[in-house]
């Protein structure tokens, strides 16, 4: 026979389990953000892991805008889920950038970010002069659990950004539960502790009426995925209205053939030889 006290205890523990009273949710791979296209999300086993480090490489020197746009769009996706999880807070985004990027690729432009669905008022921009400063500021921000996301954008391939540094970032991200996007311009992938690694290039858009350029489009390639297969390309479009990535129905021609997964069915097909499974 449960006493009044037991009932109250049960009630209390029910409150404690409620996410509202749990400001630091348990970090881990459970929290994922879908990007939009079912095919892509299935390949990623649910989406992009929050509270983790992800690397985004700009494919070429002219793709800095595309990479920044992809990072901003991903941030927008992550923010939706992160703030839903924590009752509407945690929408501040810290974007750490090496000052040289502004010279080389242009400064971030508020209305452009707003056009992607990211409210510029939520953004805190940190400009550091050297890569070490970028890393320090990024790490400091990654440790803050009250942020929606952190974007770290150094220039080139500085020595300080080695495996240890990426490990530190990944640890900070998973401990604080903050999603960290490491945006790499003019750099080649090297060993790192990131959960996923992408290469992003601008993709041909679907033309609007009178052959006008269409919505933001990206050609992305998953280079590495710690917990799953990698080595696939997608052509994505950013749906500004729904704040989702979509896969345009009529695919633009891609430079090389891609392997596709079955559209239906819970088990992925056996991996073809050229697809690699990587992990640490």
């Amino acid at each position: 026979m449960p006493t009044e006290l037991d009932r109250l205890r049960a009630k209390l523990s029910a409150f404690a389990r409620h996410p509202m009273h749990d400001p630091v949710p348990s970090p881990g791979g459970e929290r994922k953000t879908g990007l939009g296209p079912a095919d892509l999300d299935r390949f990623l086993e649910g989406g992009l892991g929050r509270g983790a480090l992800h690397e985004i490489f700009a494919a070429g020197p002219l793709d800095a805008g595309a990479a920044a746009g992809f990072a901003a769009a991903l941030t927008r996706r992550v923010l939706d889920d992160a703030s839903a999880e924590k009752n509407g807070t945690d929408k501040t985004v810290v974007w750490v950038r090496q000052a040289f990027v502004n010279v080389e690729a242009g400064s971030l432009y508020g209305p452009g970010l707003a056009g992607l669905g990211l409210d510029p008022a939520d953004l805190v921009l940190v400009e550091a002069k050297d890569p070490l400063g970028v890393l320090k500021a990024g790490l400091e921000a990654a440790r803050c659990s009250a942020l929606g996301a952190v974007v770290i954008e150094p220039w080139g391939a500085p020595k300080v950004l080695d495996f240890t540094a990426s490990r530190r970032l990944a640890l900070a991200a998973s401990e604080a539960g903050t999603t960290v996007l490491l945006l790499r311009l003019q750099a080649e992938p090297q060993q790192s502790a990131a959960e996923t690694r992408w290469r992003v290039a601008a993709g041909p858009s679907r033309p609007l009426a009178a052959n006008a350029p269409g919505a933001a489009a990206f050609t992305i390639e998953l280079l590495r995925h710690r917990t799953g297969p990698a080595g696939r390309r997608w052509h994505l479009e950013w749906d500004h209205g729904q704040c989702l990535f979509t896969q345009p129905a009529r695919r633009a021609p891609l430079p090389r053939p891609v392997v596709s997964l079955p559209q239906r069915g819970s088990h992925p097909a056996p991996l073809p030889a050229e697809r690699t499974r990587t992990g640490t």
Partner: peptide, 16 residues
């Protein structure tokens, strides 16, 4: 207040 521009009529990087 920020008035979001007409769908993606503004760039993300601006040179000044």
């Amino acid at each position: 207040p920020w008035i979001p521009p007409e769908a993606q009529s503004r760039p993300i990087h601006l040179f000044d």
